[in-house]
Amino acid sequence: MAFSFRYLSLHPGNFQDRYSGTRSGWWAWFLQRLTGVALVGYLFLHIAVISTARAGADTFDAVLIFLQKPFFVVLDLFLIAAVLYHALNGVRVLLFDAGIAIRQQALMFWICMLLTAAITGVAGYFSLPLIFRE
């Protein structure tokens, strides 16, 4: 995997951002790719799980009851966090494409992180009864 380290270090954002003097641009880019690859992996698993419906309603329900146990509810929160970051940073990129807020890119990155944490926190709060049910 030598290529990947070279590739990561070559990304210009690995150096200080022109406007903020931080490396938040590299982190934003890296996290977008990390969550993107993870979500593609999840997507194929998700389609495979849903396709158990073809084996009949009983099979589907047995699989889905297992996958709604507290452990998986917690995993779902990581999924929600990944989706949120990817979507919010995607909006951040769209704004840059439109020439908006380019000089505020570091601030925008932290807004993405804050909103991801906040909304995941709210989702986690409402999921508590599922995580701690008997």
């Binding site: 419906a53 309603a57 589907f60 329900d61 889905l64 009851i65 709604q68 779902d76 929600i80 989706v83 989702a123 409402f126 999921s127 009864p129 599922l130």
Partner: peptide, 25 residues
């Protein structure tokens, strides 16, 4: 998608009106 599968039925599951969030029916 996430709202419908994970959150819209949450109240019913918590109150015991519904066994799980996602079932075939």
């Amino acid at each position: 998608h996430i709202w419908m599968t994970h959150f819209s039925g949450l109240g019913d599951v918590v109150r015991g009106h519904q066994e799980e969030l996602v079932l075939f029916e």
